[in-house]
Design a binder for these strands. Sequence first.
DNA 1: GGACATGCGCAACCGTTAGTTGCATGACGA
DNA 2: TCGTCATGCAACTAACGGTTGCGCATGTCC
Lengths: 120, 120
Amino acid sequence: MSVMVDDDLWSAVGDPTRRRMLDLLLSEGSGTATSLSEHLPVTRQAVTKHLVVLDRVGLVHATTAGREKQFRVDQAQLARAVAQLADVGAAWDSRLQRIKRIAETIQRGKDTNNETEKKQ
Amino acid sequence: MSVMVDDDLWSAVGDPTRRRMLDLLLSEGSGTATSLSEHLPVTRQAVTKHLVVLDRVGLVHATTAGREKQFRVDQAQLARAVAQLADVGAAWDSRLQRIKRIAETIQRGKDTNNETEKKQ
DNA sequence: GGACATGCGCAACCGTTAGTTGCATGACGA
DNA sequence: TCGTCATGCAACTAACGGTTGCGCATGTCC
């Protein structure tokens, strides 16, 4: 019934700044804490902390080259996250649809018992 | 490009406890802070605070009856939230698809030793 | 090689938030 | 009226998102 959700993964994409960082990394291909912070309303250090979080849940990983640390999106993990968004959305959506159908059934009258409502 | 997202609405459903509360309210139809807290690993007071933020973004609203305060999900607002989940998911998904296509194109072009490297 | 710039990491600090405990109050049933 | 039950309010803690400041390593330019 209730969808299996990785809370850590969801929380990681729950933050607006981190979502924008993922957007940036996807469109640019890769980026450093400094380069990302230039396109964001927060400081480099804040970006660094977010990168740690994203790295911890496997949504990005880094390769150090000289004094720069390039981050890239892990596509498989982001795909997992997208799947979870879709799952939860679908679960809620079907709930809403069911409520709507019940409401319409009640509206129509009480003798049309073709489809069953089960929970109270 | 970047999807229009209501950060407040998203943050509201970004919290795992609040998501479970919405699940409970959807399946039970309605609930009080006390009744919800009985199915959750947090205290009644914590649930109350979450109900305040859910109410603030319009995802639930309450009707006071005697000494009880019954909360119900606002279906229209939850539908909006679901739509935003779907939007962000779709945006990332198309990004991932595009990257995949580009990767395949490059692979096809430079391919004289056709061993596909597989990650898993 | 030395001077300077750049990218990063670490630490201290602040405001907000998710959670707790404790207590007071208002509504209900016997 | 008395006890019970749901709620509300206040204080406190821990974690988080954010800042500023500093130190260190690497790269560049004479």
